[in-house]
Amino acid sequence: MPAAYADALLRIWRTEEPPGLRLVGQVDITNQVAFMGQLLALDGAPTHLTVDLREVSFVSFAALHVLVTFAVLLDPDRRLVVHTKSPAPAQMLRVCGWDRPAVPITLLEEIDDD
């Protein structure tokens, strides 16, 4: 399947099962608007949405903010499920107070040892 978005740093694919996005590369200030666009294009999916960041080597603070903004806009009964191999997103969510129930993000971490 061709990528729904591609630039020098980042490629984004739509996924069907589970519905959501798979990202490969780096998400930063140069492509965070495109990332938001791809998230908004998922609108209408009937269930929880999944964003797979396991093949992403860098997620900027602003890009994480994009995820939070999108999650807060979801219908009340839906959640954003985020897969990551980095401990950094959880840390950023915590220090910004975005780990509270008001932000419907479920973070699934697969952290490798150093």
């Binding site: 740093l9 780096q26 930063d28 140069t30 603070f61 980095s86 401990p87 950094a88 840390q91 950023m92």
Partner: peptide
């Protein structure tokens, strides 16, 4: 910025920073 992060990652790895500290530094 991507090249600057790559520069930072190389230097941090060379200095022996643990992986979690490297990631935090990049952010």
């Amino acid at each position: 910025l991507a090249a600057m992060r790559a520069f930072t990652r190389r230097e941090a790895r060379a200095a022996g920073l643990p992986r979690s500290a490297v990631e935090n530094l990049l952010i």
